[in-house]
């Protein structure tokens, strides 16, 4: 008695998003000669690197049924902390700067995770608190001024190239691979899905739910640390008010990519496509010289459309 026919909702949820991206790229390449060029593709990948990395961490958090609103603030926080050690004089080895940046992000993430796992405070509230705290700490630390005068070696991570590929793209690829392995190949990834799919059943199956939750928030924090360093290196300064609103971009990338905000469903491949869709969209519309006002409207429509598909397919499941 089971339906074995073509299930449009399921199909759209699984593959629709890839078609949207491809369709967008085809349309844009007709509209603008310079869109489909190697240098512009590199340009797009460079632009997606920071938001894409953040969205990877967000995806893991979303799959557990949580949310991380503090990513923008953690990016700024890790950026200024890391860049404090990235001046040419006294100079520290690049690896030290990176580790400090990642540690700053990890620390914020750890606090998020501990609060969410142990106090029962809703992740929305807990990370909203961290959003304000980390931003405040950043402003306090910098006294509201950007940190500049960054060393040559530090500039390499955001602006350099290896062969013909920009370093941020390499970081993005590495983060994608690591995230995909964690989420889709390890037992940890299985448990992340389990916690989001049915927290009580996960507990009954002997899974340490608290540990899983803490892990995803730390992971999100570490990736924000990396993103903060890349952003600072790319723009040549760590601004205390940088990256505000990035949480929404990251959530949108996840949701467009088919990750459910109620947890238990999603994946990193969809997320990277979601992030690409947003960047391709603004890149293409910029090239066509479309006003930023219209761009905002189009972005909103895409996000709502993606969630509609999500809801539609969920309705089909039950």
């Amino acid at each position: 008695m089971k339906e074995k026919n073509f299930d449009l909702g399921n199909f759209l949820r699984k593959f629709g998003i890839y078609f949207v991206l491809i369709l967008m790229m085809i349309i844009l390449s007709f509209l603008s000669k310079s869109f489909m060029t190697v240098s512009n593709m590199m340009n797009i990948l460079r632009q997606v690197s920071v938001s894409g990395i953040v969205a990877m961490g967000m995806t893991l958090v979303l799959v557990t049924g949580g949310i991380d609103l503090s990513v923008g603030s953690m990016i700024a926080f890790a950026g200024v902390i890391g860049c404090t050690f990235a001046h040419p004089d006294p100079s520290y080895p690049l690896i030290v700067v990176i580790l400090i940046g990642l540690a700053a992000g990890a620390l914020c993430g750890l606090v998020n995770g501990l609060i969410v796992a142990y106090t029962g405070v809703n992740p929305f509230i807990a990370t909203m608190g961290m959003m304000t705290i980390a931003r405040g700490a950043t402003l306090l630390f910098t006294n509201g001024r950007p940190i500049n005068d960054l060393s040559e070696s530090f500039q390499f991570i955001g602006r350099g190239t290896v062969g013909f590929i920009s370093t941020p793209i390499l970081f993005l690829i590495a983060v994608c691979i690591i995230s995909a392995l964690i989420l889709h190949k390890t037992s940890l990834g299985r448990y992340i899905f389990a916690v989001g799919g049915n927290e009580n059943a996960a507990k009954v199956s002997g899974i340490n739910v608290k540990k899983i939750k803490i892990f995803v928030y730390i992971y999100s924090g570490i990736l924000c640390g990396l993103a903060g360093l890349l952003l600072a290196s790319r723009t040549n300064a760590a601004a205390p008010n940088a990256a505000s609103g990035y949480e929404l971009d990251a959530i949108a990338a996840g949701v467009i990519g088919g990750t459910s905000t109620s947890g238990g469903r999603g994946g990193v491949y969809g997320t990277i496509v979601g992030a690409l869709i947003m960047v391709v969209l603004s890149n293409g519309l910029d090239m066509l010289n479309v006003s930023s006002y219209i761009q905002q409207i189009v972005k909103g429509i895409i996000i709502i459309g993606a969630v509609c598909i999500d809801q539609f397919s969920k309705g089909k499941d039950s």
Binding site: A194, G197, N198, A201, A202, V204, G264
Partner: peptide, 8 residues
Amino acid sequence: GTGIFLGL
């Protein structure tokens, strides 16, 4: 509630 993961 505590047995299966419906979506998995």
